[in-house]
Design a protein around this nucleic acid. Structure first.
Lengths: 167, 167
DNA sequence: ATCATTGCAAAAGATTTGCAAGGTC
DNA sequence: GACCTTGCAAATCTTTTGCAATGAT
């Protein structure tokens, strides 16, 4: 799952690794090898991923640096709590992306190639806040996914049968 | 899960029941008692629901009119394919709502009471189409969920611990 | 030494599927 | 009668959990 990264990175004072260390310390949790390894992998590339994608890239059982599946899931949740990752759902599974040092944005989802493309829109934020105000609703966040077919897939006429996508 | 239904119903020429019958016939599928009963329940009230909500309202095993869980799931998928229901995900489970005869809209999701509120916004559609055009993306749909706390829950100060919501 | 973390195996929750029995055309 | 549909039981898929062993401070 590769990504269109035209968005600017926000200035942050700490690396993800350090930020997580700080978070762990503040909670009396330990900064273990498994946690550091996971943070390193997760922040080594700017991509959307799910637990399986991540596990595939990690050493297998028996190899050095192996991290078990439960630990991957546990750590992903910790990273979300720490504000380093954002989590959302697509087609029935949890998808993660960088949050720390990365601006708020939304997604275009290609139903053919399953790729996610990002975009930023101030108008959307204003629209959101205005709708919320009309409903006397206190906003904590939002999630917009526009689905369709990306340029590349539109070109290649290869018609695959459309699945019942969850958007 | 109750709903704010201020939106107008679209004029349609066939009842949901008839529309589904037509769909089934066109596919060589049979309009069975179970299917008719499910359509009747689903379209008897305008609510967001999931498979469990629906099953709870149906006769239990042993009672007349019982429909098994697999059949409920199978039929919900058929209703989505037929364009009678729309399906999306919230907090890890599939949620359904009327599609046939009901206008496009989006949702405000209250993290406290889990209620969904609907709203319509032409500006959002325009924004969506404009973003898609910029990315040469062919839009088939979108899903916007604004999360936060509804007016009623804001008033009642009962603070429950916030869960890690998937929005 | 104390207490958090890990991996394993198993559980959990939602949804789907194989298949024999039953229903519809 | 041909073939679709149903219900049952079991499988699947993703994620979580109990627990004994291991590791960090």
């Amino acid at each position: 799952m590769s990504t269109d990264y035209t968005l600017e990175t926000i200035q942050v004072s700490l690396s993800a690794q350090d930020r997580f260390a700080e978070y762990l310390q503040s909670r009396g949790m330990r900064n273990t090898g498994q946690r550091r390894r996971l943070v390193e992998h997760v922040f080594s590339t700017h991509e959307h991923f799910d637990a399986d994608n991540l596990i595939e890239k990690l050493p297998r059982k028996g190899e050095a640096g192996y991290v078990s599946r439960p630990t991957v899931y546990r750590t992903l949740n910790e990273l979300v709590d720490a504000g380093l990752l954002r989590k959302f759902e697509l087609a029935g599974r949890a998808v993660y992306e960088h949050d720390y040092g990365y601006p708020q944005h939304d997604h275009l989802y290609c139903q053919e190639c399953q790729q996610l493309f990002e975009f930023q829109s101030q108008a959307l934020i204003e629209l959101r806040d205005s709708v919320a105000k009309d409903h006397r609703f206190r906003v904590t966040g939002h999630r917009l996914i526009i689905s369709g077919v990306c340029e590349e897939c539109s070109r290649s006429r290869q018609r695959k049968k459309r699945r019942q996508d969850l958007i």
